[in-house]
């Protein structure tokens, strides 16, 4: 943590009035040398994730893996209970009756897949987030914003990698003028106070 009395600059934010100009600007920021940036919109904007250059979420793979594990586990549970541990004749059916197991196997897939999706979503979204606050209430109302982050304050930047930090040396003036050239209506600095 930075313990100076000077507030630490965590980034520069540029505001836009509509989704189309935000997407156009986001493409330019993505293709620029600013590596750490994020977009804030009051609603889901179609095509924004492509403009940001975001990769596909890994959540579906977790869901798929856990759902198929659930199928297998539910089969094993019933096979163990009905055939190995406590074999009973029910309705004249064989101990290992696949048709009777299928609904539970289906439910097992849904249960494990659903729970795994929830926790994977929490994990990949870097939640719970107890420190970051909204830097401007307008981004939940009517304005669109791009935040170019100062790599120093981004906890996902490896601080031990000196080369990485030097290569991304942050200049708030450069970021401000760049945001203006891509069409931001208002540009201002964001400090750790009020944001972290």
């Amino acid at each position: 943590m930075h313990k100076s009395t000077e507030p630490v600059l965590s980034g520069v934010v540029g505001f836009f009035d509509d989704a189309d100009s935000l997407i156009d600007a986001t493409v330019k920021v993505r293709d620029s040398s600013f590596k750490y940036f994020d977009c804030f919109t009051p609603f889901a904007v179609h095509g924004l994730e492509a403009a940001q250059g975001l990769k596909r979420s890994k959540v579906p793979y977790v869901t798929g893996f856990c759902a198929f594990s659930g199928t297998g586990l539910a089969f094993w549970l019933q096979y163990y209970a009905c055939k190995t541990s406590w074999p009973h004749i029910v309705g004249g059916k064989p101990f290992n009756s696949l048709p009777a197991f299928v609904p539970i196997m289906f439910e097992g897939s849904i249960l494990l897949g659903g729970i795994a999706t929830f926790f994977a979503m929490i994990y990949f979204n870097r939640l719970p987030n107890l420190t970051k606050r909204a830097f401007d209430p307008a981004i939940t109302n009517n304005r669109f914003a791009i935040l170019i982050e100062n790599p120093i304050t981004n906890k996902y930047v490896d601080e031990h990698d000196e080369d990485e930090v030097r290569a991304n040396a942050f200049s708030s003036e450069a970021a401000e003028s760049f945001l203006k050239t891509v069409g931001a209506k208002e540009v201002r600095k964001v400090y750790e106070e009020g944001w972290f």
Partner: peptide
């Protein structure tokens, strides 16, 4: 991906 936002 670069053309994904090009609206018709």
């Amino acid at each position: 991906m670069a053309h994904a936002h090009a609206a018709v």
